[in-house]
Structures are given as C-alpha cells and as structure tokens.
Design a protein around this nucleic acid. Structure first.
Length: 558
RNA sequence: GCGCCCGUAGCUCAGCUGGAUAGAGCAUCGGCCUUCUAAGCCGAGGGUCCCAGGUUCGAGUCCUGGCGGGCGUACCA
C-alpha cells in the first residue's frame, strides 16, 4: 500500500535526523483539496530537530518526490505534507478489494489466539429487556469484530440460578399457583410482579396438576424453581435467537457450587492471608488491590455474597484457558469491577483481568416522549417487543450506532421510517442500488465484472472527484474495522458505513444519465464502463462485509 | 462525601495516538425527476464544543478546579 511506503519513507527521513521514535499521522484529510493523504510529521519533528516545521516539510517534499505512485506533494498551512496520488495508485485499491472479496476488511491481529466475550448474562427471572438488547448487540458484534481480526472467539452467557433472586422467583410462582387455584395468596415483598410469572404458574399447573396446592414444601418450591428457570431460560434463548445472537456456552452459577469451585476459592483466598473475620462474616482485604473498601465473602449466616462466585467464575475462565476475557455489562454494575479484579489479583491473576466494557442504559422515545410498552413484564420494555416492532436489523443497528458509554435514546419514529433518513435503510439501499447496477449490466450482456477473479478494468480512468473520494473511502475499511475491534466500539463501523453509503449515493447521483450522462456508470465506452462497474462491485463488497460484521442482512433488492 | 461515565447545532449524536475552516442524521428553508439512477441528489441557515484556569507551534481532545446530569457506593443481585 502507498500509505505504508510513504510512512516508511517518512520514518526513514526522521531517522536520518537522529529521531528514531517519531510519532506522526498519515491519513486521509477531511478536505479533498488537501490531497489523498496528509501527514503532520514536520510539525511533530520541529521541536525534536529544532527547525521550523515548514522548512522540514519542504525538505521532506524534496526527498520523497520520487516515490512511485505519488503525483505531487504540497506543503500547506503550518507545515502539513499533502500527498496527491496518481490515479493508478488510487484505482489499485479496487483490485485489492475484488481480490479479497468477502474477506476484505479483516486482519490477523489476534493471531488465532482465544478470547472470551461474556455478555447478556441476565438472571433467569424474567424476559430480556432493552439493556440486555443493547448488550446482546454489543457483545455479539464485538465478538464478530474480533473474529474478523483473527481471534478465536468464545461467546458466553453466565446465569445466576442460585441465590436470593431465584428463591424469590420460586416463591412468586408458588403465590401465582395458589391464586390460580382460587386462594388468596399475595405476591411477597421483593417478588416478581410481571404477568409472565402467571403464565409460568399456569403452565406448571397444567403439567403438575394441583398436587402442591397445600404443600409449600422445599420440594414444591424446588420443583417450581426448576420449572420457572428452565422456562425463562428457554424464552431468553428464543429472544436472543430472534435477535440473531447465539452463544457457545451458557454457564451456570449453581455449577460453581456443585463443582466445589466456590469452596476451593475460599480456601485459596484464605491461604493468601488476606481474609479476616468481622462481625461474624468472612472478609477479603480487597483494599490491598485498590478497591474502595473490603468485601464480604461469606455472610454471617454462612451463605456467600455474589462477590465470591464471581471470583470463582473468573478463576474458572482463566483455568479454562481464557487469559483474554471481555465482560460486557451495564454500567450499573461498575461497582463490581474493582472488587472482582481485586479478588483475582489476590489469587495472582494480572491487574487488568478481566477487561470490562460498561455500557449506559437505553430509553425509547416516540414523538419525543419516553415510552414503555411491555404488557407482560410490567415495569420495563422487553427486547422481544422492540424487535417485533422495528425488526431485528434496525434494532441491532440502533443499539450499536452510539458509543457504549453514552446513554442511548432509541428513536422509534426514526426506527420505523423506511426511507434513507433511517441510517440502516440508507446503508441497505446503497447496497441494493449497487446490486441493481450489476444486474442491469448483466441484462445488457456486459458481464465479466462480477466473476471470482478481479477484472482487468483500467481503474485509473476513475478520476472524477466523487469517484476518487469513494475509492479512498473504500480503501479505509480495514483500518476502521481494526479500530472498531481494538476499541470495542462497533459504532465506529456504523459511522463508517453511513458515510460510505452517502458517498455511494453521491457518486450514483452525480452520474445521473440525464444531467451528466458522461458520468453514468453504464456508459457505452467500454473501458470506462468496466472501471465504473468495478467501483460499484467494490463498494458493494465493502457495504456487504460491513453489514455482515454488524450481523445485519444486505439484500440485493429492497 | 467518595468513585465511574456523560456534557459538542433546535433534537439525537460522531469527532482516531492533540492538527488545517468542529462534522453527520433528524428538523427548517431553497433548488433538481422525458433517457440505466428521486426509498435519491445539490445547496442554505443554525455553534461561548458546560464554565474558569493551565500545558504548547497548535486543545472539542491532555491536566487542575468548578457547575450540571446518570449510575454506583449493601452481610442486594
């Protein structure tokens, strides 16, 4: 690539002045009049070599003039170097895209190493809500980004099927069950008031009959617990499948107890000498590792807090061979980050383990007003309701298009709009338009563009500004994908795709057959037509691959 | 009180390791459909980048101190 050759040459020149660790940028300027590539190296070098930036820039311009593919270099502003590439060099991007095809955009940063992404991890006490939806989309797409970056990814869902909340769920089922049998049985304080528990109780009654009517025994509650958990987990799994999200493993909190992992973790922590008894509870000195206060491991009644199985679980991840782990969680859980890491550090794991990605909450607005539209869950909007309303693709995209750490307002009016105003449709339409061009070319017998091998089109003919800009944009796809993966930030890809779609539309429209027939894609001039169809195919590949990373369909016709 | 996150156009938000005139979509206003191509395109208006200092050739970006909002700060999960 030209960018690499140029940046090598720049680095070499800096080394010639005795600066081996020069930091600089070489990227595409916002303003096309600043060239195809621009660098600030003269500005960063100025203080190091004690010369004026413009002089350095002029010096560099003279040295780099001979590099192949560069048409000219300009020194601008305080000392920026602007590189204008030859059309051949720009057009070469298209051939690379057509060579790589459905692989285009990926990289090998991961080198085949294993990484776990844990996400959603909802309690099996109710249907998934919008926060889970955002998390499902984020976790899944981060996993996809990592796969495109050469990682072997394991998607995991941890579910808390032990503990107090589950006991309360069982008690709620019992209350609803009794109600169905005509008794006056209130849902206890801290119980689950959503309608869905009534459905579960009804199903349970249908299957098990009234045998537990007068028996609020341990066995009865245990039977109801099992039934409710299994039914809610099934529902969550269905909702996730409907959201195009699948897990490699569902990991049970209870299994940490039956495997004795929790027990072993207590022993291991005890052995560090960092535990102590206070007011009947067993504490860990997590403050040794930067936590704000020490944490209770075992309550005075002998039961474990959540902290303990969390540590046991993450020790387990490490022992299973996952030394790279990303936990996607709602930011309301940020309080647990320091304590879990502290517990793990006490056991000798490195300080940054595991990595956390915390995302902010979601609200839904219609007509500028916040809405909640769950009939079954009562207090919150479910993921399933949202998907039913706007569709999977739109829901996924909207959850992804903002930075995770920013609050997300889900604009239902925009989500339901099927025009280009809706960013999802904008990208899909651009893709479909490009497909139509290929189809039309095929109908006219102008084939050869779309075969498995890159055609020999003379892409240097693509010299119109809209074409140059689009080509440069397509060439940047791998860089954006890499950055999105490294930053765990799918929205970077959303922004990229929207901008690309915009440039596609501009290009498509500036070649309007009526007003600018000489810029139309399907011109009679064969070499030009081939070049433009090559551009169309390359752009289609980028949009398609980009949508694929987001887990969104790219139809050939809308 | 302490900790984490956020504060950019009327609204929702981008802005990469500090770079050139701060961007996009929505909304508003104006222009463009006899020829593959209007689910579209082109253009315009709209900003004390929360405030005040600081660092430097250069700050929306980094540092310090405020202000405002969200979340957390349990022997809850």
């Amino acid at each position: 690539m030209h960018a690499e050759r140029i940046s090598d040459a720049l680095r070499e020149a800096a080394a010639g002045w005795g600066v081996d660790d020069v930091r600089f940028r070489l990227d595409r300027p916002k303003d096309t009049s600043h060239g195809d590539l621009a660098s600030n190296i003269a500005l960063t070098l100025a203080s190091r070599v004690n010369r004026r930036p413009r002089d350095i820039a002029l010096d560099l311009k003279a040295r780099l003039g001979g590099i192949e593919g560069i048409e000219r270099i300009e020194v601008a502003g305080p000392g920026f170097l602007n590189f204008f590439l030859e059309s051949v060099a720009v057009g070469g991007t298209l051939h690379r895209i057509l060579e790589a095809r459905e692989e285009y955009g990926g990289n090998e940063d991961g080198g085949g190493r294993r990484i776990m992404v844990e996400f959603v991890s909802a309690n099996p006490t109710g249907p998934l809500h919008l926060g889970h939806g955002r998390q499902a989309a984020l976790g899944d797409v981060i996993a996809r980004l990592l796969e495109w970056s050469g990682w072997e990814v394991h998607r995991e869902f941890y579910f808390n099927d032990a503990g107090l909340q589950i006991a309360r769920l069982a008690e709620t089922v019992w209350a609803r069950y009794r109600q169905l049998l005509g008794h006056d049985e209130p849902v206890t304080e801290g119980g689950y008031h959503g309608e869905y528990v009534v459905e579960i109780a009804r199903d349970f009654l249908e299957r098990e009959g009234d045998r537990y009517e007068h028996e609020r025994s341990k066995a009865a509650l245990e039977a109801m617990r099992r039934f409710a958990v299994s039914s809610l987990r099934d529902e969550q799994r269905r909702d996730l499948a409907g959201f195009n999200v699948h897990f490699d493993e569902y990991y049970s909190e209870r299994s940490l107890y039956s495997d004795k992992r929790v027990e072993k973790t207590i022993e291991a922590l005890d052995a560090t000498g960092l535990t102590y008894r206070h007011e009947g509870a067993l504490w860990l000195r997590t403050t040794e590792f930067g936590d704000q206060k020490d944490r209770v491991m075992l309550k005075s009644d002998g039961s474990a807090t959540y902290f303990l199985p969390d540590v046991a679980y993450h020790m387990g991840k490490w022992e299973r061979g996952f030394h790279e782990v990303i936990n996607v969680q709602g930011s309301d859980h940020h309080g647990t980050v320091d304590r879990v890491r502290a517990g793990l550090r006490a056991l000798g794991r490195p300080g940054g383990y595991p990595e956390y990605l915390l995302h902010q909450m979601v609200t839904v607005e219609r007509g500028g007003e916040e809405v909640r539209f769950s009939k079954r869950a009562g207090s919150y909007t479910t993921l399933a309701d949202l998907v039913a309303e706007v569709g999977v693709d739109v829901a996924r995209y909207f959850f992804l298009m903002r930075r995770p750490e920013a609050h997300l307002t889900f604009d239902l009016d925009l989500a339901l709009d099927q025009s280009d105003k809706n960013p999802v449709y904008k990208v899909k339409y651009a893709h479909a338009r490009l497909c139509r061009l290929s189809r039309l070319a095929h109908e006219k017998g102008w084939d050869g563009m779309d075969g498995p091998r890159a055609p020999d089109a003379d892409t240097a003919l693509l010299a119109a500004p809209a074409e140059r800009e689009l080509i440069n944009q397509l060439g940047e796809f791998p860089g954006f994908l890499r950055r999105a993966a490294r930053d765990r930030a799918p929205h970077i890809l959303c922004d990229y795709l929207e901008r690309t779609a915009g440039l596609v539309n501009t290009w498509y429209q500036t070649g309007h057959p009526t007003r600018k027939p000489e810029l139309a894609a399907l011109v009679y001039d064969e070499p030009l037509r081939s070049a433009r169809l090559t551009l169309a195919v390359a752009a289609r590949i980028v949009l398609r691959n980009g949508l694929k990373v987001l887990g969104i369909r790219a139809p050939e016709a809308m």
